[in-house]
Design a binder for these strands. Structure first.
Lengths: 183, 183
DNA sequence: ATATTAGCGAACACTGTGTTCGTTATCATA
DNA sequence: TATGATAACGAACACAGTGTTCGCTAATAT
């Protein structure tokens, strides 16, 4: 891939993340993005159809990255969906979020736009659906699977959001415990 | 209050609700609202500072209405916060939502803007905080109260959202059961 | 070395926002 | 029912943001 393309995409994403950590998605203009990214207006629209598509692509990149990273931290298995313990999967996810090597956390705060947590939740649902152990937990009841999956993913998102909003004082292990006690 | 004021407010709210049931908040323009409401542009801005304030006022009105209605359905108690059973409170809320006499449900769907569920959740948090019985349920654990309150309110919102998205086929009693089993 | 293509900036039409102003119609109330 | 107050009106406005076009320049892959 052309180096110029990589450079502009990176510049735009970084400017966008920076702006998202300062204000709502709705309040961010293309003008602000290209000013921070220091790229031309034409260039922006050559890369992204609209601001919404930029958000979509950013989320895809961020969540791909984090879910990939989590799966690679467990080298015994070649894919996250093959993890033997639900416990380990969600704790790993929390630990990875705790490191915050990408700026994902800033974006998950409740003051920020819900769109991002929406993307996060969609990714989580897939993960949850594969965690049969977790789903079995309250299987005895007559709750439908789709309800359980949505429920567990929502609770995880809300757990992380609470964590971030309260300054992330707790250790990932503590949050994982809260999550397992709640779900 | 001047009849003209009441009439325009009503017309604007109704047009706005109708539009919200069709498309995202972000995609709705003031021009569309005033066209449907059949009021002048000047009039709109005389009533509402911006589109965001309109949403805020609508939510306040809707949620005030529903929480009031729920409290009045239990005439033995003069205020919802004095209900003796958590069970009854949430079931009443679900029953009232099921009737859908105001168009609240359309707005809570996941396809619609998250802003509205946000307002709903804020109202619920107050209610949850007063449901000491419910909070005591898993009190033995070392989970902070603020976590529990946020958790329970979130689960309720997500429960309703799941219900709406799946066509509300279940009875309020069934949904209440799902909720109590999950929370 | 050169053909290709990304990026540039200026200009553009277009849509939506929020305001101003003078006029008309409706209201509360005396 | 007369009257002063005020809500609603439409037209016009400045302004900001969107997304596109065009001709030119500079970086890149081969």
């Amino acid at each position: 891939m052309d180096r110029r393309i990589r450079k502009t995409r990176k510049a735009i994403f970084e400017a966008f993340i920076q702006l998202l950590s300062e204000k709502d998605f709705a309040g961010i203009t293309v003008g602000e993005i290209i000013e921070r990214a220091d790229v031309g207006r034409t260039t922006f629209y050559a890369h992204f159809e609209t601001k919404d598509f930029l958000l979509k692509e950013l989320c895809e990149e961020l969540f791909c990255h984090i879910f990939d990273a989590v799966s690679k931290e467990k080298p015994a298995h070649n894919h996250i969906f093959e993890c033997d313990s639900s416990d380990a999967v969600f704790l790993h996810l929390l630990k990875h979020l705790h490191k915050n090597d990408n700026n994902i956390l800033k974006l998950l705060s409740s003051t920020n736009n819900e769109l991002i947590s929406g993307y996060f939740k969609e990714n989580l649902k897939q993960l949850v659906a594969s965690q049969t152990e977790l789903l079995e937990l309250k299987k005895s009841e007559k709750i439908p699977d789709s309800f359980r999956i949505n429920h567990i993913a929502s609770v995880f998102v809300e757990t992380v959001r609470w964590w971030v909003d309260n300054g992330m004082k707790e250790a990932p292990e503590t949050i994982a415990e809260y999550f397992y006690l709640s779900v």
